[in-house]
């Protein structure tokens, strides 16, 4: 009986019976919390609003996917360029790249959104919120991608660079053929994690009314007042994307762990 609930600290194996029992218990726990809120709020459910407003919700979801895909691409480009700039012989580039990374990583995303939206956007005459949305998100994510790539580059032993130099490869060729192919493999798991963050963080763009998933759901909520259904649907929508990415990331980690 005790074995159903307690496992040894170092043991990774949990029996099937224990797994089933405890999954059921977690489920029950969540259900009880749910029940409590429903009773307390005297809430009555109407799941039909999801289908009633499905067009809005699907539009928002698609918009989130679009913004995140574009931002992912741009932040990768920013990350690569910046990681190289951090190692540049030109001091200005080094400092600029360092400053950018520290600035982004040291301030809340919400503050960056407000700053960008109220200062940079009007100054440059950007009006399209979709463009503003993926630009902010790219700049934000780019700093984190830079750090991931920098770590990857630094994990390549110096001896390889010396060997490559002695073979006559130039700096560009060393990056192109020797460093990046190896870095790319090594950073894939952390990059997958970053994609997951990117998708979650994109919900903050609702604050400046970019019509992405969270924004659209807020609209549906304002129209229907069915808070429980709309926000559960919202959370579920993000989980549908982030759980597969998390699994992929774990799989990549195992794969390259054994290979190296």
């Amino acid at each position: 009986m005790k074995n159903l609930f307690i496992t040894r600290e170092d043991s990774k194996k949990i029996t099937k019976a224990a797994t089933l029992t405890n999954v059921a218990l977690v489920g029950l726990f969540i259900f009880l919390v749910f029940l409590f809120t429903v009773i307390k709020l005297d809430y009555s459910f109407d799941f039909s609003i999801i289908s009633r407003y499905q067009k809005k919700l699907i539009n928002g979801f698609t918009m989130t996917l679009a913004i995140c895909s574009i931002s992912l691409f741009i932040s990768l480009v920013i990350g690569i360029v910046n990681a190289i700039a951090l190692k540049s012989n030109i001091i200005f580039f080094r400092f600029l790249a360092r400053f950018y990374v520290e600035l982004i990583r040291g301030t809340p995303f919400l503050v960056q959104i407000l700053f960008f939206f109220y200062i940079i956007t009007p100054a440059f005459g950007l009006e399209n919120r979709f463009i503003v949305g993926f630009l902010i998100l790219s700049l934000f994510s780019g700093a984190y991608v830079t750090e991931i790539i920098r770590g990857g580059i630094e994990s390549i032993p110096q001896t390889q660079i010396i060997t490559a130099n002695s073979l006559g490869f130039n700096k560009w060729q060393i990056y192109r053929y020797i460093i990046f192919p190896q870095v790319f493999k090594r950073i894939l798991p952390s990059l997958a994690g970053q994609i997951s963050s990117l998708i979650k963080d994109s919900s903050l763009l609702s604050i400046i009314a970019v019509s992405e998933f969270t924004m659209k759901t807020l609209e549906v909520n304002a129209l229907s007042f069915q808070t429980y259904e709309t926000f559960s649907f919202l959370a579920l929508g993000y989980l549908v994307i982030t759980i597969p990415i998390s699994l992929l990331s774990k799989w990549l980690e195992r794969k390259y762990f054994y290979e190296s």
Partner: peptide, 19 residues
């Protein structure tokens, strides 16, 4: 840079690129 192209060097270890 040009000169290095024509000199063969073998180091102590990790000469080969692992990928």
């Amino acid at each position: 840079k040009e000169y290095r192209k024509n000199v063969g060097v073998v180091f102590q270890s990790y000469n080969l690129f692992p990928h």
